[in-house]
Design a binder for these strands. Structure first.
Lengths: 134, 134
DNA sequence: CAGAATCCAATAAGATACTG
DNA sequence: CAGTATCTTATTGGATTCTG
């Protein structure tokens, strides 16, 4: 319930262009390499186990995968469920908050696939401009 | 023109989930902290000078700004124009390719602003779960 | 299986001073 | 103004070993 005391600490303006604003950190983390891929994978498959994710995100180390999952769990985007079987089973899935990230992040991965040839071409031309004129 | 020789080197499948695929690198770079903010800023203002960008992206070092701009130029997303005045003047603007990134990246920054309170709340709860139960 | 812990190498990031 | 060069610090990433 809102009381008069709340006026003392109003919600600060949130702007990732301002140093120290937490929205900048969050922006950085949701755009990070493994977070983008983890969220994409959980978005497609609904719920995944640790090993599944590790195998799908080729090249990820267990350390980085653990770190990424913990961060996403802490930030409320991923739910971690432990089933105390033997051997233990753990499932990860997107929370409602995490679901809202699927669309913008998919747009980003789609962009990288759709425009990769343009980028590679641009790199070649940049290289030529740097070497050929002298 | 396409010839039979093109068959020898077909365009490989592009998938950021596969290690070594260049689309993963590109995905990583367009999602990087300073690139997101630079593209957003150039998207809003059309053309910016180095100092303008440095002042708008509070907290960026000149080194990181230079690196980011060079990378974006190399990858064909940003055009760098030098006006040989005295003192020299340099303007940066988005290329058509860079323009196509505005919308998906704005979606990401908007997300970080719109959901930052949810994330901060989730962090507090995570903290409590970690400390309170023991 | 699903990690945790530790160590180490490589790289990124940042602060600072300097230059055409 | 628009960087470059240099140095130091912080973070990343990988390999390895261990555990319930």
């Amino acid at each position: 319930m809102a009381t008069i005391h709340d006026v003392i600490e109003p919600t600060p303006a949130r702007d990732p262009y301002v140093q120290g604003c937490p929205s900048r950190d969050v922006l950085d983390q949701i755009g990070s390499k493994w977070a983008v891929l983890v969220i994409g994978e959980l978005g497609r498959h609904g719920a995944c186990r640790f090993t599944q994710l590790r195998d799908q995100l080729s090249g990820v180390s267990e350390k980085m995968l653990t770190q990424t999952l913990r961060m996403l769990e802490r930030d409320g985007m991923v739910l971690r469920t432990v089933y105390p079987d033997a051997p233990i089973r753990v499932e990860y899935q997107l929370t409602p908050l995490g679901q809202t990230l699927r669309s913008p992040l998919k747009a980003l991965t789609d962009w990288s696939v759709q425009h990769i040839e343009d980028v590679l071409t641009a790199r070649k031309q940049y290289q030529e401009r740097a070497t050929r004129p002298r």
